[in-house]
């Protein structure tokens, strides 16, 4: 009976993941390996960026007059924020579908999201990346790693650590069923600062991590070290988010750009 319960939990979490996220690894890989009828538009310099802004991005985030006068770096940063905000809302709905999450103290739910969403975001972003670039605008665009790297300081430093993480993470060859459980494990984490009902969350975390372990054994029978490797990725993601939050603080201080209110409340008093 316990095994049946664990399989049910894995299935529920996988279904919640497929239902709530617009992009997933299977869709992203289909596009990145050229198996779609229309390939993504490649953004590799200022000219192709402008072309993309007139078509793909205009559809995605609208074109605000205030942004038109800003330099490319600030406009790209604005698009990154829109994607982050959309992913945070998707992650919130996903979390609510994870059995037990909605029964947690509401303030604890907020804390789990505050600390978990960026770790989960960067883990899922890896699905949209290959060594040369990143899928953007719902898979309709592909922005090259070199172009992102060439942006002026501090914007040029923003994505490179995520690419470096993604290349190692992608070598683990997880599929969407594995990622769904991994993302749930990131969110249901009992050691986030300020949690009130730690035992309740730890019990949830334990059942999700057990299910992840079991699922990896059956889904990747030839890779016995996958589970401990993934536990290490949880540590790496925390470091990645800490560095990202520091960069955001620097941008806030030195650049003439605004931070979305949802992101402001997530980053405020974070680490």
């Amino acid at each position: 009976p316990q095994l049946a319960d664990q399989k049910t939990l894995a299935k529920q979490i996988h279904e919640a993941y497929l239902k709530n996220f617009n992009m997933n690894k299977s869709k992203a890989r289909t596009i990145l390996t050229g198996k779609t009828s229309t390939p993504p538009f490649v953004i590799h310099d200022m000219e192709t960026l402008q072309l993309a802004e007139q078509t793909l991005v205009a559809k995605m985030v609208g074109s605000s007059a205030a942004l038109l006068n800003k330099d490319a770096e600030v406009r790209i940063f604005h698009c990154c924020q829109c994607t982050s905000v959309e992913t945070v809302t998707e992650l919130t709905e996903f979390a609510k579908s994870v059995p037990g999450f909605s029964n947690l103290d509401l303030n604890d739910q907020v804390t789990l999201l505050k600390y978990g969403v960026h770790e989960a975001f960067f883990a899922m972003l890896a699905s949209c990346m290959n060594k040369d670039g990143l899928l953007v605008a719902y898979g309709n665009g592909f922005i090259t790693r070199e172009f992102l790297k060439s942006l002026r300081r501090p914007f040029g430093e923003m994505m490179e650590p995520k690419f470096q993480f993604a290349m190692k993470f992608n070598s683990l060859e997880l599929d969407d069923s594995d990622l769904a459980l991994f993302v749930a494990a990131i969110i249901c984490c009992g050691d986030r600062p300020g949690l009130v009902n730690v035992p309740h969350i730890e019990r949830m975390q334990e059942s999700i991590v057990n299910v992840l372990h079991l699922h990896l054994k059956s889904n990747h029978p030839d890779n016995g070290f996958l589970f401990p490797k993934l536990l290490q990725k949880l540590v790496d993601l925390r470091q990645l988010v800490t560095e990202h939050a520091q960069l955001i603080q620097e941008i806030k201080k030195t650049e003439d750009t605004s931070l979305h209110p949802l992101l402001q409340e997530i980053y405020r008093d974070m680490y």
């Binding site: 945070v88 907020v110 949802l262 409340e265």
Partner: peptide, 20 residues
């Protein structure tokens, strides 16, 4: 609660979109 009002709202009401 005031510090995280958008997260609270998203958790309690899924049909309220966040402006981009």
């Amino acid at each position: 609660k005031e510090k995280h009002k958008i997260l609270h709202r998203l958790l309690q009401n899924s049909s309220s979109p966040v402006d981009l």
